[in-house]
Design a protein around this nucleic acid. Sequence first.
RNA 1: GACCACUUAGCUCAGCGGUAGAGCGCUUCAUUCACAUUGAAGAUGCCGGGGGUUCAAAUCCCUCAGUGGUCACCA
Length: 719
Amino acid sequence: MDKAYDHSKTEERIYKMWEDGKYFTPEVNPNGKPYSIVLPPPNVTGTLHIGHALMLVIEDILIRYHRMKGFKTVWIPGTDHAAIATQSKVEAILYKKEEKTRFDLGREEFLKKVEDFAKESHDTIVNQVRKVGASVDWGREAYTLDEKRNLAVRTAFVRMYEDGLIYRGETIVNWDPKLQTTVSDDEIEWKEETTPLYYFKYGPFVMSTARPETKFGDKFVVMHPKDKRYKDYKEGQKIDVEWIEGKITATVIKDEAIDMEFGTGAMTITPWHDRTDFEIAKRHNLPFSQIIDFNGKLLPIAGEFSGLHIKKVRPLIIEKLKEKGLLVKVDEKYVHNLATNYRGGGVIEPQVKKQWLVDVNKEFEMEQSEIEGIKSGSVVTLKKLMKHVVEESQITIMPSNFIKTYYHWIDNLRDWCISRQIWYGHRVPVWYKGEEMYVGINAPKGEEWEQDSDTLDTWFSSGLWTFSTLGWPEKTEDLKIFHPTSVLETGYDILFFWVARMILMTTYLLGQVPFRKVLLHGLVRDANKQKMSKSKGNVIDPLDISQKYGTDALRIALIFSTAAGNDIPMSEDKVKGMKFFVNKLWNIGRFIEMQAEENNLSLDREGMSYKPSGDKEEEILKKAKGAISDINKNIEAFQLHLAAQTLYDFTWHTVADEYIEYVKVSENKKQSIAVLYNIFLEILKLLHPFAPFVTEEIYQRLYPEEAKKKPLIIASWPK
RNA sequence: GACCACUUAGCUCAGCGGUAGAGCGCUUCAUUCACAUUGAAGAUGCCGGGGGUUCAAAUCCCUCAGUGGUCACCA
């Protein structure tokens, strides 16, 4: 054996050996109890970052542990088409390279470009997944936008439509004029902004607004019914008002949504471009009209300002109102939150638009249910389902402090807008012919039917992930054996986006939970606790690290010393330290090899048969037993960092520092070495899920008798 | 505003009811003998402040303070 472990000489060879041996498939333990994980599919928008590496490592540890314990284990890999994210990325590249927009290319040609990009990104990701040693079953790989997943999406959509859970409606949506699409509430990122707040005279009232450019159509002035300042004004009262474009007749409305503390307690409403206003208008049956078009330009209602972009028009309107003597005052230091699209950064302009939505409050009959406490045929809502399975502990969320956040999110959940006006994604399975509409899995027969041009929110398809990857809607063997999946492991940042949506879709469509447990990991941050980002230049590329220090060192560093759910500070020094540990392991192996040779011991059962005779031997065996029991307990409790620490400590400070030093001076050397030889095998097994490459390599060299029967990856786990 | 987490050695963090721990850093010494990617010894802590429960609290409860995060609202 070489003096130091060289990961560059082993990793690729070993991964190939595992793959060729088909050890990643459930067939290695055909009769075991099923254990399944679906990989949270990375977006095909680029390459994997260190957070993905953490996710892969945690899941790989769970998978390898269960595989060695004899479970019929499957880990399903895949990638996510990430609709809007991928499309906007390609649009950006297209614009930079050719100064063209997607409309210049047309749907078909543009989609071809996106697909090429996605393919390339996919290949990079797959390569990265292999590099971190993930023992995923490549034969079962899936893509959220491939044929099979498309069938699942269409089937789900149609079923939900038939149950009245999907509807098409005029509603106020978050419109991104930049990307020309709606986005869901969860895709909004609020940015704090200081902006002037203008106070205008509006008849006898003073109203305030940060957005004068939307105020053209305001013919309703709203106040709280209990506001004493306005007690003389009655609901429905008409008042003549001098406004931007001359005299108008305003109507008084009383509504409890008004905050009496804010401004003057009176406000005018713009239902087409504000959610609160929209809701007030709906409650009072008020008409509403569009002021701003979908590109952000003013419509003819704005009179002389018609056709101008809202950005340009604001100062002009303020000037005009000032001239008319309607400007009362300006509060320059008004702080509010500006809605932006978190994928692309465009400022959100609320608009009323026809969209497809999922009704989360509508009661429906559960066709078939295996969920405890929900019988087949009982009446539920999607919200109720989502809450029930967590409340009744049919899904355990870890760490448990996220449960409260989860409930809170459900309580605030509004109908989920699932249609997007982008091109990359699953097309809505709805066809139109004149006034007629057809909703179905396949296109209707006959000419002249035109498919809805919208695509679906990417989370609609990833919500089906635990079972669409197993073959649903077909009733496959995989689905029968592996669903519900055992654990879903992912970052806490997508608890709402994804985890909640999976629970919604799966409980409804299958009458099952998608997984028994949810394990949430933290965000990987840099040594200064900063979020890693390209613009900050503090990104640690997992591949660089793994090339420099070895994948095993990277893996242990990611797991070591950080409790689940907490953010993880990552530094190269930490990885370096773990490389030392990997090398220590290697040198214990070397020590055994050299001692065996010197003492004429063959590396096999017979040569190393032992009778633990001395005190030291008894002691180390006892300690090993203790360590094994601790590690088992820790892994079962998902305390991987504790397991890793125990292993590190036991291997280095007990076996190497104490016992090996003793072996050197032992009077009963052969027996002492034999004991070491046997304990080291246990260590290699215990460490294998954490550091799969170096342990497999040492095992192959030092334990040829065992290795001949089976490689370490499927060796039996120490009890 | 609501909710959640965090506050432990110089730094990064474990531990979460029974005499304060790890890694890195620091001091001293040893050794080229599996490994200098080494070993041994050592220094450094009112375990954020205050109160309570308990035979016993870093660990459980209450409260205050600071830090970070999530969600909601914002005319």
